[in-house]
């Protein structure tokens, strides 16, 4: 009776004839939908043996280039959106101004736009048929079917991640410490690097991790803007599709297994960071608010 968690546990557990079927549905759903597919990538990727796996990944110049390109494009897009996310979150969390709600809605907009539409608009602007695209090309700047378009398309689809993770974290923290730093004579930059940034570092990391996973895995938008030139503009997800079309399933699975590992590492880091964020929240709750 004295232990409240005991009491909660009793009311919250249903009789076995309800509980067991629901657990079975959950385990069955997650198993069929997620666990079996994940297991099958690795089994199929390694089905021809480990040497064949590495040959499929690194023995083919076009596959090698796709790995390189993904590793080159994703960080640029993530960096752009991280700087933006930090600034946008600071402005939205710390100030009240007209159009603030609208701004928040617009930041979320890319999540509701089909990646194909995102890619399309950049083709419409920078394609050879377009005024700007034609002019740039005449002056020697290739945007579409080249890395700049890959960065643009990736930055578009991953645009909201960092900002939307950071806004609630910053809002929960409150401006008190920043105001104190300012009143003690800190410059704006000192305040930002000594107070604002350290206070939200886990939330920032969380947003960056999710943003990066999406950036490395983006398919639709890149499919449209890249022109899919093997050895030139194919990223890893595009390479997976091409190998699939060429009926080279083991190689497609090998590249897919790399991307799957990225996804699994992302989820692992996400769990770690979530734990840190909870710990930080608990710590700041322990210290009674300075009145």
């Amino acid at each position: 009776m004295a232990d409240p968690s005991q009491r909660g546990a009793r009311t919250r557990t249903d009789p076995a004839y309800i509980r067991l079927p629901l657990i079975a549905v959950t385990v069955g759903t997650l198993g069929l939908l997620i666990v079996v597919p994940l297991a099958s990538v690795f089994v199929q990727a390694f089905s021809a043996g480990i040497p064949a796996y590495f040959r499929a990944l690194f023995g083919n110049a076009e596959t090698r280039h796709s790995i390189f390109l993904t590793l080159a494009v994703a960080p640029v897009a993530v960096a752009l959106n991280t700087v933006f996310g930090m600034v946008a979150a600071y402005v939205i969390a710390r100030f009240r101004f007209a159009g603030r709600t609208l701004l928040m809605t617009l930041i979320d907009l890319p999540f509701s736009v089909s990646p194909i539409v995102a890619g399309l608009v950049f083709v419409l602007i920078f394609g050879q048929q377009a005024a700007l695209g034609g002019w740039l090309q005449a002056h020697g700047y290739q945007v579409i079917f080249a890395p700049p378009a890959l960065v643009l398309a990736t930055a578009f689809v991953t645009f909201p991640f960092v900002a939307r993770e950071l806004i609630p974290v910053l809002e929960a923290n409150g401006p008190e410490e920043e105001l104190a730093a300012r009143s003690l004579g800190a410059s704006g930059w000192q305040m930002f690097t000594h107070i604002t940034l350290p206070n939200v570092k886990w939330g920032l990391l969380y947003g960056v991790i999710l943003c990066n996973a999406r950036a490395m895995g983006e398919f639709g938008a890149i499919y449209v803007v890249s022109g899919r030139i093997a050895g030139k503009t194919d990223t890893m997800p595009l390479r997976v599709e091409k190998l699939f079309q060429e009926y080279d399933n083991p190689a497609a699975m090998a590249v897919a297994s790399l991307l799957t590992m990225v996804a699994l590492v992302t989820l692992f880091l996400k769990v770690l960071v979530e734990r840190q964020m909870r710990a930080q929240k608990a710590r700041s709750a322990e210290v009674p608010a300075a009145e």
């Binding site: 597919p37 895995g217 699939f244 996400k270």
Partner: peptide, 24 residues
């Protein structure tokens, strides 16, 4: 572990998901 699995579709590239499902 099952709880962590729920997020897999957010992290896994959709092309990889398509490839796996077509193969399964």
């Amino acid at each position: 572990l099952f709880d962590a699995c729920v997020d897999v579709p957010f992290a896994l590239p959709t092309a990889v998901a398509g490839l796996i499902y077509a193969n399964l």
